[in-house]
Design a protein around this nucleic acid. Structure first.
Lengths: 223, 223
DNA sequence: TGCTTTTTGAGAGTTACTGTCATAAGACAG
DNA sequence: CTGTCTTATGACAGTAACTCTCAAAAAGCA
């Protein structure tokens, strides 16, 4: 068996042997084996239990043992599904979607515009399906430092991924300072937009906010 | 006494009752009381012991207990000086310097230029005094996720501080999306410059790199 | 010298993890 | 349906980073 835990369902792709797995896609996939379905079920059960407890008593005051008990699994099992407590809140699904969306953009489109569109599109899809859920996670992001910390490292990893993508398209070196500066700046501004959106309880249009954040950069640095 | 630990020396300013304290300034300050000098000494002893051990065995594999032993203090004392292990590596000195440098800038200077200058100036001073030390910390930043995490949260806090400053000067609301987007973008690009600098072992000129990172934003978003 | 304030260390407790191993349960071949 | 192989689970023991409390020691001060 996989050294670190239960092999999470990867129906079609032959990617990494073990990863967090993106629930979004799998929900819509062809019928999975009984085993896989069970795993998804426990995963969701754990997360549901966790969020129930978070709502009651807050994130930091609920222990992993409590969550495991509420979800009726052992603590060991909990950690097999979520290597860290913060992983309950943070989803890694976004990056591959972003990558795909970017690749789908015409090569002659201005770069920043490609990026903007590539970010908005999967964001829309996610929001359509999990609006309230995202809002909840963002609240935790705001309120819990350890979650913020974890998310920010993830964002940095997204940035280096993006650098790879852009390097591919423009021919610039992926680890060049200029590229890295631009990418990290866009990501920072964008996540500020998402944060802002969540502070307004999701009442404003995310795409608008994102565009406005990016065009703010144009105004400030453009001249 | 202060609720969280020994009151760290704050010779002149009447700032927060308890904070990490900036060693840089205090080294140059008027003679402190015996008590204060002793505290600085232990603080440095702990840090020195820690970095010695890190060099030998790496960050993650050296325990706080080891560090305390090497520094000849009790573990309790360690935590009084450094609430978290990562605080050994992360310095909070920079923000006040940045703030002061920014305030010293002429009000009619273009905003981005003010920021750039305000960042470079204290950076120069720090590098002049602690070049190798900074390099070492940055290496840990690159190699240890938990340090990166903590540093990034700090960066976000710096950003909201900067937003306050800029809001003061421009009259824009400090929590407006546009301002926040711009500030977080600059900070992201800048820290990318510092990171880049450290990857080159500090051989390139930091001010140049910072300028180049910021002008990259101009190129990307401006035209 | 005595009194007050601050720093220190000892010790006990909590929590998020990690690793190991035996057992139970799904998958599959015959 | 049976036996076999694979994979998921739970029990258990351990570690390391903290947190809290309290008494003793040291520093500052009258």
């Amino acid at each position: 068996m996989s050294p670190t835990g239960p092999t999470l369902p990867r129906p079609s792709a032959g990617g990494t042997p073990m990863s967090a797995g993106s629930e979004l896609e799998q929900l819509l996939e062809a019928p999975l084996g009984l085993r896989e379905r069970k795993k998804l079920k426990t995963r969701r059960a754990i997360r549901a239990a966790a969020f129930r407890l978070f709502a009651e008593q807050g994130y930091e005051t609920t222990t992993v043992d409590q969550i495991a008990a509420e979800a009726e699994v052992s603590p060991s099992t909990f950690f097999r599904y979520f290597p860290a407590k913060e992983d309950l809140v943070i989803s890694d699904d976004y990056d591959p979607l972003l990558e795909a969306a970017f690749r789908a953009r015409p090569r002659d489109e201005p770069l920043v515009e490609s990026i903007r569109q590539a970010m908005i599109e999967p964001l829309r899809r996610i929001l359509a399906a999990e609006h309230d859920d995202v809002l909840l996670r963002m609240r935790l992001y705001r309120e819990v430092p350890s979650i913020r910390a974890r998310a920010l490292v993830g964002q940095q990893e997204s940035a280096t991924m993006m650098c790879g993508l852009l390097a591919e398209r423009t021919g610039e070196p992926a680890d060049g300072l200029r590229l890295r500066a631009v990418v990290s700046a866009i990501l920072a501004a964008s996540s500020e937009a998402v944060l802002y959106w969540s502070e307004r309880d999701g009442r404003e249009d995310m795409a608008d906010l994102l565009s406005s954040a990016i065009s703010a950069l144009g105004d400030a640095f453009g001249g």
